[in-house]
Amino acid sequence: MADISSDASSTAIDVRPLARRPMLEISGVSKSFGATQVLCDVSLSVAPGEVVVVIGPSGSGKTTLLRCINLLEDYEEGTITVDGAPIGYRRRGSERIRMSERDIAAARATIGMVFQSFNLFPHMTVLRNIAAAPVRVKGAPRETAEARARELLAMVGLSDKAAEHPARLSGGQQQRVAIARALAMDPKIMLFDEVTSALDPELVGEVLAAMQQLAQGGMTMVVVTHEMSFARDIADRIVFIDGGVIVEQGKPDEILFAPRTNRVRAFLKRYNDRYRI
C-alpha cells in the first residue's frame, strides 16, 4: 500500500508542503452497522488531481466508504482529512473528538458528492438547483451564483435546460445537473457513487464524458463504478475493495489485466462473464 503518511495521530491541520500533502487522506477508518462490520481499518491517500476508481463486489462497502468521507455515515474509528483539514473527527493526542455540526457542514461544503439516484431538488429549476447552495451556504450574491451556474450548465452541455424542473429531464441530463450542482461549491474533491447505474444504457456516455472532462481539468476524484472500460480510461489508480478491506490497488492495467490476488481475478471474471456480449 503506497501510504506515505504513517502519522495517524496528526492533529488539526496538516502542515506538510502542498505538493506532498494528499488531497484526501483516510486513515484507519472502521465502520459497523450494528453487529456487521462494513469497513475494517481502511486507509487510502489520494493526491491532488488524482483520480481513484473504487471497484468491488456489491455489498463490499464502497458506498459506505464514500459516505464516510463527507460524514453522511458516522464511523467508529479512524480519521479523514481533506486538503489537510479534518472532516468529522479531529485527534487530540490519543483522543478522537467529533467536530461541531457547524464545522462538519463547512467541511462538507468542500466535498462534492454525486449520488446514484441524482437527488436533485424537485421543486427548483435546474438553475436554482445549482445556485442554491452557493447562495444559501456560502452567501454568494444570487447574480454571481446564477452566472456561475450557467457556466457550469454550459460545461455539461445543458445550457438550454436552465429554466426546466428536474422532472422534465432525462436521467442522464439530471445526473449532469447533479454534477454541476456539486461543482458550483468549488469543491476540492469530487465523490461519485455509481452515478451511471440508474441510467438507461444510451444515457451513460454523456455522464461519463462530463466526468472525463472534469478529470482532465485536474479535479481530484474518487469514483465508484462498474464501468470497467471507463475505469481504465479515467483512473490514475484502481482500488479493489472486498468485505470492507482494500484488497489490492494499483495502476488500471495492473489491476484489470494482471491482478495479484485471486479475489480480484474472481471478481473480474464474474464481471466479464456477465457483461460479455
Binding site: 457542514a105 447552495a133 461549491m185
Partner: peptide
C-alpha cells in the same frame, strides 16, 4: 435522499429545512 443531498452541499439544519424540505 433529499436531506442527504442538502447536507452533502454543506447545508445546516435551518438552511436545509428552509431551502430543501419545507418548500416540498
Amino acid at each position: 435522499r433529499q436531506y442527504e443531498a442538502g447536507r452533502a452541499l454543506g447545508m445546516r439544519r435551518w438552511t436545509l429545512y428552509t431551502t430543501v424540505v419545507l418548500p416540498q
